[in-house]
């Protein structure tokens, strides 16, 4: 499969004389159509990395290739069209007075004629299931709906890559899952590469590959299918320990013999119930 992102030896410091690098010799590549989760503590360099990929920050050292094209002052405008970013707080990215206006905003900078614009805005709103809200005021929507509109505003530009920068962190558990399901759905229909920066273990587990950042460095690559087993390391990765593992740890402390391998919440419930009814 073709490489869509290639990052080579990227380094960045926010201050010239700062001995602590925000990015420290980071290299990785992403194949077209992959879903990559980037995890790590606040301050580990995740957001700095995301901002480098679309040229908001210019690295001190290293090179970035997007779709085989090197990111430079000349190519940055073109490359930004290929990368859509969705942030934590959608309110910061709303500009339009209605949902449709807001989604159309990105197109206005791209000399798209009116009919084409209307068509593409409609399509994008359909893709995220927000067609009924086209005339609504963005600020009156729920958190999950706002993120859907933000996603439509990105999809309308038909990007190849979407970066989700902690974009589900303000949503409740249900809203979070809906957003992830939506992105997964879109990937069935369009060739989208997804980079999700997250602290949410379920979001991380949904990825094809997991990159772990610490102190500006890319410290390890992990298989998302293994992460639930690693409860000790999860905290170090900036992720939450799943509830079933927390309960197992508490029960062990109290002298209850719980199974050593990871159980999902449902499995844990079944195990507890079985043990309770044995007596």
């Amino acid at each position: 499969m073709a490489e869509i992102i290639n990052v080579k030896n990227l380094s960045y410091a926010y201050q010239e004389d700062d001995p602590k690098l925000a990015l420290d010799n980071v290299s990785f590549s992403v194949n077209d159509g992959e879903w990559i989760a980037i995890v790590g503590h606040n301050g580990s360099g995740k957001s700095t990395l995301a901002k480098s990929l679309n040229g908001i920050l210019v690295p001190d050292e290293g090179e970035i290739f997007i779709n085989q094209e090197k990111l430079t002052d000349e190519t940055v405008w073109h490359i930004r069209d290929e990368i859509g970013m969705i942030f934590q707080n959608p309110e910061n990215q709303f500009v339009g007075s209605t949902v449709a206006d807001d989604v159309a905003f990105g197109l206005e900078n791209h000399q798209v004629n009116h009919d084409e614009m209307v068509r593409r805005v409609q399509t994008a709103l359909e893709q995220v299931g927000m067609s009924d809200f086209a005339d609504h005021e963005p600020s009156k929507l729920s958190g999950g709906q706002k993120q859907r509109v933000a996603l439509a505003g990105v999809l309308v530009l038909e990007p190849k890559i979407i970066i989700l920068d902690e974009s589900t962190s303000m949503l409740d558990p249900l809203g979070r899952q809906e957003m992830l399901d939506l992105v997964a759905d879109l990937r069935q229909q369009y060739p989208l590469t997804v980079l999700s920066i997250t602290h949410d273990i379920n979001e991380a587990a949904q990825a094809d590959r997991l990159l772990v950042m610490d102190d500006g460095q890319l410290v390890t690559e992990a298989d998302p299918r293994d992460i639930f087993e690693k409860s000790q390391q999860l905290v170090e990765m900036g992720l939450d320990v799943p509830f079933s593992s927390q309960l197992a740890m508490e029960l062990k402390k109290l002298g209850v013999a719980v199974p050593d391998h990871y159980l999902t919440n449902q499995e844990m419930e079944a195990w507890v119930w079985q043990s309770l009814s044995k007596g």
């Binding site: 309960l247 508490e250 402390k253 109290l254 002298g255 209850v256 507890v272 309770l276 044995k278 007596g279």
Partner: peptide
């Protein structure tokens, strides 16, 4: 929750 469960499981 763990305390309550441990009490019930331990008791048995």
């Amino acid at each position: 929750l763990a305390q309550e469960l441990a009490r019930q499981l331990g008791g048995k």
